[in-house]
Design a protein around this nucleic acid. Structure first.
Length: 398
RNA sequence: GGAGAGAUGGCUGAGCGGUCAAAAGCAGCAGACUGUAAAUCUGCCGGGCCUUGCCCUACGAAGGUUCGAAUCCUUCUCUCUCCA
């Protein structure tokens, strides 16, 4: 990271990969004072499993940190009671204090793989929002108008199409904005879906006689499918705490096209450096996978994952470590499909049948194509099963 | 308070009383191919079964009409719209 950058270089460094920066001049002016900025990012307390999509904004926090600024990680234990209305259909259950505490710790463990713990503050917004009380809340609500709220695209659309908007949803942007007031934030970061909320922060700060914060948004990262944004509920995510082998495989499974976006948002390489990889996509993808695994699990794990990938997919050998399954022996031969299910290689018998019929099952390296295949399952028998490209198990009959 | 619209498989979204385990797209899975779990192409895509044909579930819930209902009727639940 850049030790001594001049003002403009700093602005550029911080702006890299951002979508909105409001406004660049403000940021420059704040930086010019030479004092560390207070930079805040809010996180919902409900989803403690961070994935690569979350790391985009966390990486941006890191950039601020590297330049010596004060980064505050705000856990929205108060705003969590409302739930950000963005595209949400179901209200989530209220969490207990213990659960929130626990989630916060889980966050920290993951976030500090990227951020420097010594330079990161963690705060809970119930601290100041809870203290407001209902009368304080009303005073806060008095600072903003419905017309301005309806500028938010999400609200606007719902309003125009006569979809319901609950009153409490209008409070969410206000509450979040009040975080900035309470913390006297110089800048707030968030995904592009946060733009409106972040801008309300600016307005509200003016109302409270504070200098408005700089707003910086980062792009939403598409998930493995390359279509939907990465999210746990869609199952198209790469979790920070996932095992290295899965991360490696999942990275390799993204489309070449999508890979470049991951490069831009999930590594610290400059666009010029990324360009040098363009003519060898496969190597580039492996390099990306190694980079990401190194960050979360260390370089050794990354190398091992790479080796294993080569072994299993390029050379189509069995992995170095195969799950051992012990199944009860029987004198009569048993249907292979049942064994596959019993070994946890397929969820249902029907699915196992399909896999066999489609030629996706190998016993001891030999393909099976008869769904009615039975196998000798007397005591002491052992088989190496391969189902699909990446499910292996050694079954032992006892 | 009154009038009306709608609820379909992970999602989006078709669906004439029988030929609907339910079109199509997306996502997912498998195979082929390959530079990768990329792209492309092909196939699959509710479950059970001593396993290929039969049986169970399934179209918001519960009843009913019918030889037969996702499709018709009644009630209920939920969502939305309009009028007041």
């Amino acid at each position: 990271m850049p030790a001594a950058m001049n003002l403009d270089e700093q602005v550029e460094y911080l702006a890299k990969g951002s979508v909105d920066l409001i406004d660049r001049k403000d940021l420059r002016a704040k930086l010019a004072r030479g004092k560390p900025l207070t930079v805040k990012v809010g996180f919902d307390p409900t989803a403690p499993d961070l994935h690569l999509g979350h790391t985009v904004v966390i990486r941006k926090m890191k950039h601020f940190q590297q330049l010596g600024h004060r980064v505050i990680f705000v856990i929205g234990d108060f705003t969590g009671m409302i739930g950000d209305p963005t595209g949400k259909k179901t209200t989530r259950p209220a969490l207990t204090h213990e659960e929130i505490e626990e989630n916060a710790h889980t966050y920290e463990r993951q976030v500090f793989k990227i951020l420097d713990p010594k330079k990161t503050e963690v705060r809970f917004n119930n601290e100041w929002l809870g203290a407001l009380g209902s009368s304080g809340m009303i005073k806060l609500a008095a600072k903003y108008t419905l017309a301005r709220m309806l500028e938010r695209e999400d609200f606007r659309k719902r309003f125009d199409s006569h979809q319901p908007i609950s009153i409490h949803e209008l409070l969410y942007p206000l509450a979040q904005a009040y975080d900035s007031v309470a913390l006297k934030a110089d800048a707030e970061l968030g995904g592009t879906d946060q733009l409106f909320n972040l801008l309300v922060g600016r307005d509200l700060m003016r109302e409270y006689g504070l200098e408005p914060q700089v707003v910086l948004t980062t792009p939403l990262l598409e998930g493995l499918d390359g279509v939907e944004k990465m999210s746990k509920s869609l199952g198209n995510y790469i979790g920070i705490t996932e095992d290295p082998q899965s991360i490696f495989g999942k990275i390799m499974s993204i489309s070449d096209e999508l890979m470049w976006k991951y490069y831009l948002l999930c590594t610290d390489l400059t666009p010029a450096e990324i360009e040098t990889w363009k003519n060898r996509p496969m190597e580039a993808k492996k390099h990306l996978a190694r980079f990401i695994i190194t960050e979360f699990h260390g370089a050794d794990a990354a190398l091992a994952a790479d080796e294993e990938f080569r072994r299993v997919f390029s050379e189509r050998q069995a992995p170095s470590e195969v799950d051992e399954k012990t199944l009860p022996a029987s004198k009569e031969p048993q249907f292979l499909t049942k064994i596959i299910v019993a070994a946890g290689l397929a969820p249902t018998n029907k699915e196992a049948q399909r896999l066999v019929a489609q030629g996706g099952v190998l016993i001891d390296e030999a393909r099976v194509d008869d769904p009615k295949q039975t196998i000798d399952s007397r005591k002491g028998k052992t088989y190496l099963l391969k189902v699909g490209k990446r499910r292996f198990a050694r079954v032992n009959f006892v």
